Every structure is written in C-alpha cells, then in structure tokens.
Simulated scan of single mutants.
Amino acid sequence: MALPRHSRKYALTEEQRHMYASEKLMNFRWISKILASYSPHTLTSHDFAPTEVQSYLSEIGQFAEVAYSTISTEFIFENLTLLLEPSFPLEGYESFRDAKLVSSFIGKVAQLPGYVAYRSHTKQLIVAFSGTVTAMQAFYDVRALKHRHPSHRGRVHHGFWKLYKGIKAFALDGVRKGLAEHEVTEFVITGHSMGATVSQLFLLDILRDENLVSIGSIPLKLVVFGAPRSGTKSLVKYWRELLVEHRTKYGKESVCEYSVKTYNDGVPSLPPLSFGYRHYAESPLYFVHGRLYQVPPESSEYALYHVSPDLEDENDPPEHPRGGHNYYNGRDMEKFARRAIWLDKAMKMDGDWQEHYRHLSSKERTPKFKTPPIVAFCMPKSMLA
C-alpha cells in the first residue's frame, strides 16, 4: 500500500535545499513531532475545499503575511509598484496592486503591529494583525494562565488577551475610518499564528457588541492561519452561539470563518489540550502540499491528517515537502521576511537604497549547493496532545 503523500520520501531540488538552508524563522516542526497527533479520519477527494475558497484564502493570506514586515506599513503602501517587482519583498503579492492603506497602528502591549487596508477592486476592508516577532511578544504567548472573559461565558488565554486588549482600540479606529471613507461590501479580519488569535478575539468582540463598529449586514470574513488554542470550551461554545445568532439575523453568508492548519505546523497544538483550551473553528481547513481540505467537526482539535494514497501524483512533487509554520498558501514566508530585512538594511545605508537592496538580495539567487539532491523524510513522530 502506498504511503500517504506527506509520509513519503521526496528528493529535494537544489532550489529546495537552498530554501531550507536559508531558514531563519521558527517553523515549529519540532513542536509538531512532540505534541501533534493524527486524526483517525483520512482526508479524501470528498474533503477537497472548493478551488475558489483556496484562491480566496491565498489572496487574503498575503495581507496576514505582510503584517509581519520589519519596515513601516506606510513605506510599503507608498512604494507598492516598486516592491511588487521581481526580487523585491512583495513579488507575487498581487492582491496589493489595488490596495490602499487606511490605518496602521502599534499596540500598547509588546508593540504588536497591525493595519487596515482597502481593496478598491473588490471593495474589501481588511484588518490584519501581526504574529509574534519580538521576544516580548513571545513572553505573552507563553502566559497561558486563564483569564475570565468579559462576557462571563468562559476563559481566555491571559497572554493573548493582554496583547489583544492593547491593540483593540487602534484596530477599531482604523475600521471605523475605513467604513467612513470607502464603499465596503466585505469586511475581512486576518492574521497568522498569534495574529490569528488576536483576529479571533477581535471578531468575538464585534459579534457580541454591534455598537463597536457599524458593520450591519456587511459580510464578515475571518481568515486565519496557524492559530493556537486560546479559549476554554465554554468560550468556544459562546463563540459558536454568536455565529449562529449573527447568521440568523443577517443571513447564512453574513459571517464566515476560515481557520487553516498546515502539515508539520506545531502551533495549532499549543497550548496542549491538557491546559483546557480549544480551537474556535468547528470545521477547520488543512493545507498540505498545495491542496486544501475541509476537516470534519469531529476532527477539529487534531493538527495532522493523513491524505488518501490515491491522491498521490508521482509526477507532481510538493513545493514545500517539509511543511511548517511559515509555509501556508504555497508561499515561503521566510523569503518575504529575508527580503524585508534586506530592505530595512538598505534604507539605513547612505546613497541609493534601491541599489543597496539589489546588491543585498543578489545572494538569494546564488544557490549554496552544487551537489546532487538529497532525500528528505517528512513524516513526524506524532504523540497525542
């Protein structure tokens, strides 16, 4: 019997070897090996998410990824045309071509950044929260004590709650500004990792208090990637009740939640189930080797899923065979991070920053390896969370 696709051995190309050798960020594969467990449900073609959903999430994911930028959001939007060119940080981030910055902000706690943007073509208002970048933000990530939620309907991860409270007012001001200045037909909240949890808490507040922002019947979309657990069972139950209430009032499509996990990402296994936290999404999505699957509700707390062997395509090896926290939507977030750092360095140098950047980025196009491809074995040793 053939092995599930993500358990097979893949010969890495020279480009892939260079990609993995260049990794600098935490990808949490080791957490996946220790804490992640496989669902007993094997994903098949019947679990495929619609292609239009996968494309939509990939577009919105670009905004979640750029929230991590080490350079100012204002500079990014002022120089979009240049930054979208080949070898520059936003190469391939085509969703930004018609985007306008509404507001950027830094939270009061651990200087967590976020921004609000408007896409004139789609009339989407998007608020994006950064994930963990600094040691101080990581300090709050591990403060896993339970804090009573203001709704009195459950408890929330104390560290995530503090980060959210520190940025909430700024995000609300940005959203109000966007709604006042633009014609909005869809409101999107997005984030990756800790930014995903902040996004969930933001939507929770909007759903429980319609006076915070005048959304009304404007469709709400939550698009998050690699979210950790942050609410107790009671709070998750309350979350789902609020979704039902909103849909009852404004229609079935008035609010949609998309929570995506990916192969070998250990963050969705944190904090462990024994801490008492659960995921908000009743039916999450799973991204593995270029395909997106809808996970059945009974398997929502698992972080790993086997894929039916009949979906194996020997002639189409995965682009990112090792998976990990920074490889959602078929993109290498490490590449964006490296390029953003080079841009930051170039801007601090005397002279033409564009020329300095091109010089710094030239190393990216010079592979370090010239030996034959090696073989990567990508099957983690899973343990029950």
Rank of each mutant, 00 (worst) to 15 (best):
A21I: 03
E210P: 04
S299F: 04
T185Q: 12
R338M: 13
H356W: 04
P318S: 03
V224T: 10
G92L: 04
M383I: 15
G174H: 01
P4S: 07
D313R: 13
F77V: 05
N27G: 08
N79R: 02
Y10G: 07
Q16I: 05
K9N: 13
L179Q: 05
I206N: 02
T122W: 01
H306N: 15
L57D: 00
R143D: 11
R29V: 11
S87W: 12
L292K: 03
P296G: 06
F48R: 05
L311T: 09
N326L: 15
T262V: 07
I71D: 03
S283N: 06
E186G: 03
L83Y: 01
M136V: 14
L311M: 12
E314I: 14
Y238M: 07
S230G: 05
I71M: 04
V109P: 01
D352L: 05
G107F: 00
K261N: 09
V175D: 04
F139L: 15
Y327Q: 10
V175L: 14
Y263R: 09
S214H: 14
Q62H: 07
L125D: 00
E23M: 15
G159L: 02
N211M: 14
F369G: 10
Y38Q: 09
L212V: 08
E355C: 09
Q200D: 11
L90I: 04
V224M: 02
F139S: 14
S104R: 01
I126C: 00
T122L: 10
I60D: 03
S87E: 14
G178H: 00
A128Q: 00
E59W: 07
A340H: 03
Y56D: 06
Y258C: 00
T73V: 13
V102D: 00
G61P: 03
E181I: 08
K249V: 11
V184H: 03
S214P: 02
L285K: 01
W239N: 11
K249H: 12
F202E: 00
D352S: 03
D316C: 10
K381I: 15
H6A: 11
Y68H: 10
S72T: 12
H18V: 06
V188T: 05
A196P: 04
R153A: 11
H356M: 04
V267E: 03
I374E: 09
L285S: 03
E91W: 08
L285M: 06
L84S: 06
V375S: 11
M194Y: 09
H41V: 08
M19V: 08
V224Q: 01
T371C: 09
H41D: 06
A337V: 13
T371Y: 08
P40K: 04
P284M: 02
E298S: 13
S299E: 11
Y140P: 01
K233C: 13
H41N: 07
L207H: 01
F170Y: 14
F48D: 09
G174W: 02
P113E: 02
H306T: 15
R358D: 08
F75C: 10
D141Q: 12
H6F: 11
